[in-house]
Design a protein around this nucleic acid. Sequence first.
DNA 1: CCGCCCTTGTGAAAGGTTTCACAAACCAAG
DNA 2: CTTGGTTTGTGAAACCTTTCACAAGGGCGG
Lengths: 215, 215
Amino acid sequence: MSGRISDSTVRRLSLYLRMLRDLERAGVEFVSSSQLAEPSGATSAQVRKDLSHFGSFGKRGRGYSVDGLVRALEEILGLSRSWRLALVGVGKIGSALLGYGGLAARGFDVVAAFDVDEAKIGTRAHGLRIRPMRELRPAIAECGAEIGVVATPTEVAAEVAAELERAGVGAILNFAPIELSEVNGVPIRTVDIVLELEGLSYLMSEAGRRTGSDG
Amino acid sequence: MSGRISDSTVRRLSLYLRMLRDLERAGVEFVSSSQLAEPSGATSAQVRKDLSHFGSFGKRGRGYSVDGLVRALEEILGLSRSWRLALVGVGKIGSALLGYGGLAARGFDVVAAFDVDEAKIGTRAHGLRIRPMRELRPAIAECGAEIGVVATPTEVAAEVAAELERAGVGAILNFAPIELSEVNGVPIRTVDIVLELEGLSYLMSEAGRRTGSDG
DNA sequence: CCGCCCTTGTGAAAGGTTTCACAAACCAAG
DNA sequence: CTTGGTTTGTGAAACCTTTCACAAGGGCGG
């Protein structure tokens, strides 16, 4: 067991956990790998393999205890605690994030927000005072935010990410359409909507080319 | 050449195209696979392999013509035209999308917006009239939107996706934290922010466990 | 035209992920 | 206790993606 775990495995673990929480709320006690597989589009073997990287959680002939597996996955994914986010850039996307209750509900609290726009600085957005960029480092040190969120224009995204890393965050979530490179082992995930749309564009064009030429 | 192209290849092609457009704007005429590889974190061999699935675009000893490769990739990815999006759900995320100029700038125009909230219906958001759900099918037929965007609460996301599919869209972009299953060959991409954050949470916890126990 | 240097395009090798298939284990009923 | 039905955990096989390494081709200076 153990070793290096792939992104796709971790991704699926999150999906399993979601379903398990639903089952827990519904009062279900045991669940099988095939039931667990369904909503994430995985196979039962994949569920078992994914879990087996971390230990042995099931009972043969019976399945997995819902409660037990919820706790185990929360522990594995680091979700038995909550995380603090520092948001840089309170524009369209930044504001949407601040107003999105789904984050806090799942243990991700935005505890600080920064912007360069003098008109925004000092005002409050969803109960949070917007601070100038110059306060980024001391504020993050003070509030202990672990995750930095980059919601700035593309041009400054790399610079902001570097500044967040120097301020001591342990991970970065980036919304700018640019591939930021990990430094000092600080992992970065990029949410790139245009990239997703272009992926769909490819698939639709491809479908058109196929039906168009082959009949 | 050709065959089934992986998502990761298509993803990289988009990144190459981005860089190529920057180079084109800067007046550069030729580019090598290694230069092209750098910003997307790929290797030069990967760039060449990715492109080789679609044809032979380079000149040995010289590299790729920037203009030529821009046109070729636009053609491959279906980006030599523009696409029309129909947005369902004008809440936090939906509004942010409507206000985000980056979409239209890259050829993705939101041409229709729908919501269930009586208070929103009939009002305008960023120049677009918000329509009731009951108009979804005729409106999409009329305006010819190819891509449906689901920005609704999780509970209704699956139903909305099915309705979009019936209305005739060719692809769906989903922002609800739920794995929607493709039906009738209509591809679906999900942008799931919580999933990304949980992935970062895993990596940070993992890092902590390593340094915590091994020294 | 020749020779040198450079870069592509591509089989083959390596590396990684998913699926298969089955022994081992567990529960329940008799 | 034994038998039968069920489901896990896991090596092995199949599949897919990335990297390697090099022959083939192109440009340029002389």
